[in-house]
Design a protein around this nucleic acid. Structure first.
Lengths: 163, 163
DNA sequence: CAAATAGTTTAGCCTTGGCTAACAATCATT
DNA sequence: AATGATTGTTAGCCAAGGCTAAACTATTTG
C-alpha cells in the first residue's frame, strides 16, 4: 500500500450489503488460497532480484551489487548473501568481486517477471491510476496475479489503447 | 499465482514494444517501491489472521485455534504462537484454552481488511475473472493495493453492476 | 606505484513464521 | 466421575531475510 496515499481507507459501511454476505469458503479451498500466497512469498523476492538484475544489465550494461543494494534499499551484505542463494538456485553466475550474469534460466525468469510486471503496471494506468501509485502497487501485486487474470488485464489494455 | 492455471504465461515477446522501453525509475523512487512491499509483508500475515478471526466470529460465533489452523493450512503450534503475537500487538484478547476475541483495534483492522478484500474480489469478478481464480488472486493482492486504486476498483464495480 | 576510496564478502547477530514432539487442559460419553 | 478424544500450549528446531562490523579486493588518483 502506498504510504503517501491520501484517499480514505475503505470501510465496511462503504460496501454494498450484498458484498458482505459471502459465506466462508469450504475449508480445503480456503487452505489452498493461503497456501498459494505463502508459496508466492517464497519466490517473489527471488523474482524481484532476478528481474532487477535483468533490468540493470539491459539498461546499464552490467549488474553490480552496490546498484542492487541501493535500488532495493537494502545493505550490501544482504545483497551478497542473496546472490549466493541465486547462484545455488542456478539463476545467476558470479565470480567473486566481479559483476553478475544471468543464466539462461535466470534470463527466462527475468523476462517473465518483467512481462508480468509491465502488464500489471500498464493495466493500472489504463484503469486510471496515477503513475506513481501504479508503480508501487504493481511492484506488490505482480507476484499474486494469475495468468488468467494477466490475460484479462492484457485484453483490457489492448481495448483501452486501441482507441 | 494460481497453480491450476492453464493459461500460458506471458512472454516478453507477447508485449507491445512500447511497453518495454521504460527506463529504470530514479533510485530513490525505486527504493521506496521495494520498501513499500517489504512493509506490506510485515503486516499482511497479521491482517490475514485478524481478518480470518473476524470472519470466524461473524460466521461461526467464535474463533477457535483449531479452525484457524485448518483454514490457514498451518499447524496449531504456529497459530498458538501467532495468537501470542496478536495479543502483544493489542489486536486480540485471549485466555488460555478459551476462544478468541478481537479488541476494538482488532475489529477495526478486520473490517478494513475484509472491505479491501471484498473490493478486490468483486473487482476481479467484474473484470471477468473466474470466481475460483479471483478468490486466490484477491487473497494475494489485497495487501498491495493502495487506497487510490481501491477507490478506482470500487467505481469500476459500481459501473459494471449498475447495468 | 602507493595510498585512498569504493566495492564486495564474511561473520555473527536478530526476528519471523514455519515445523514436530511432548505435555496440559477441556469436553463428551458412558 | 473417569477416561479417551479433541484442543491448546510449550519447547526447541530450522530457514529466510534483514542488520552491523570487520576484512578483503579492485579501482582511481595523486
Amino acid at each position: 500500500m502506498s504510504d503517501n496515499d491520501k484517499a480514505l481507507p475503505p470501510t465496511a459501511k462503504s460496501l454494498k450489503k450484498s458484498y458482505c454476505n459471502d459465506a466462508l469458503p469450504p475449508i480445503e479451498e480456503h487452505t489452498r488460497q493461503y497456501e498459494t500466497v505463502r508459496n508466492a512469498h517464497e519466490t517473489e523476492l527471488i523474482e524481484d532480484y532476478v528481474e532487477l538484475i535483468g533490468d540493470l544489465i539491459s539498461h546499464r550494461g552490467e549488474a553490480r551489487a552496490a546498484d542492487i543494494a541501493s535500488r532495493m534499499g537494502v545493505s550490501q551484505a544482504t545483497v551478497s548473501k542473496m546472490i549466493r542463494r541465486l547462484n545455488e538456485l542456478g539463476l545467476v553466475t558470479s565470480k567473486p568481486y566481479r559483476s553478475l550474469f544471468l543464466t539462461a534460466e535466470g534470463q527466462k525468469m527475468a523476462e517473465t517477471s518483467r512481462a508480468r510486471h509491465d502488464i500489471v503496471l500498464h493495466f493500472l494506468r489504463a484503469l486510471g491510476v496515477n503513475d506513481h501509485t501504479a508503480r508501487i502497487d504493481a511492484e506488490g501485486m505482480e507476484h499474486h496475479v494469475s495468468n488468467e487474470t494477466l490475460a484479462i488485464m492484457q485484453r483490457f489494455i489492448d481495448e483501452q489503447t486501441k482507441r
